[in-house]
Write a protein that binds this DNA or RNA. Structure first.
Lengths: 172, 172
DNA sequence: AAGTGTATTGTTATACTATATCAATCAGCA
DNA sequence: TGCTGATTGATATAGTATAACAATACACTT
């Protein structure tokens, strides 16, 4: 599973715009399947479809964008709780992350492993990259320890311009 | 002004619960006044009142909580744009910070100075402390530099339990 | 003091994000 | 089969934020 998790989006960097994204999606779904099996929980069709929609691009996606694309076969649109429940499940099992500064969600780049979540967000192409930098984590832990603060959760989101976008004119 | 900014809430730590909070408020208003004068913008009565409400505690406050307390003298409640405009102004001039993970706002602990914003949030007493740790900033910059990412903004919010709360039973 | 242009505030409507609640259905198992 | 708990459906509503345009206040000139 570790192989599967790292075959697609590599943690710590932005994929080339022309990478094989179908593989990112396939890998994510496969990893999710394994993670759920390992944790003894069910990756239902509904949850799988939501995860697939989250992974349709590397851009954070909002709950209502998912909702708009989540028809029940006969074109009937789902209701908000449907999508939020699926998102809650995926969050709880580490398959997606919430981007707080955007009220949106991205697929987790290395599900099934313990890691702090640090996200870089390109303000040009809109894509997100999950990084996993030990130095940042160590620095945060050190700062917390100094004032006797016991960390429970970290929200680290960095906005800026990714390398690919800097290498070309600003987005239209 | 630097003295005023550091007299109240010290950056980098949680105040003792029984600190002289009236002074925090007074200092914040005074600093704001000076910052606005220096920047050639007007700290109107409306904006001053919103800032005061933000500073009524060290807990992040939501826009609608402010709204509920913002009467126009005759008890008439203001409308949302009124408070959001004031908040936008205060954000733009570095007098408050937005807490993304809470959709809420806190007063800036050292307005008028350039700094990255790193916030610790106690899940027990609900208070926030703005820290300004160079190690975290350096680590983030290093990680970004490695993948050619140009930083524009950082959102760093750490949830956990503050020292004061750890020193006593969990909050009722 | 009156006039003028800009900034600020008021007002109404509406968009966007998220959850509570209860009913219906489904999956796994005694 | 029938029970039990998990999942989904459906409706209503809470919570967060902005668009658009009118009215007012302020600073500055004449």
């Amino acid at each position: 599973m570790k192989r599967a998790a790292t075959r697609g989006t590599r943690k710590g960097s932005f994929d080339r715009p022309q990478h094989d994204h179908a593989r990112c999606i396939a890998d994510a779904l496969q990893s999710a399947s394994m993670v759920c099996a390992a944790q003894g929980v069910r990756l239902t069709e509904q949850r799988r479809r939501v995860l697939e929609l989250v992974w349709q691009s590397h851009r954070p996606i909002g709950a209502y964008e998912i909702l708009d694309q989540l028809t029940d076969g006969s074109g009937r649109r789902a209701a908000p709780p449907t999508v939020y429940r699926a998102l809650d499940f995926l969050l709880a099992h580490g398959l997606i992350h919430r981007v707080e500064s955007r009220n949106a969600f991205i697929g987790c780049s290395h599900p099934g492993t313990e890691h702090v979540v640090e996200i870089m967000l390109c303000t040009d192409c809109g894509r997100a990259a999950e990084i996993d930098d030990q130095r940042i984590d160590r620095a945060v832990r050190a700062a917390a320890a100094e004032i006797g603060f016991r960390i429970e959760r970290q929200t680290i989101e960095i906005d800026g311009r990714c390398g690919h976008c800097q290498a070309r004119p600003a987005h239209a």
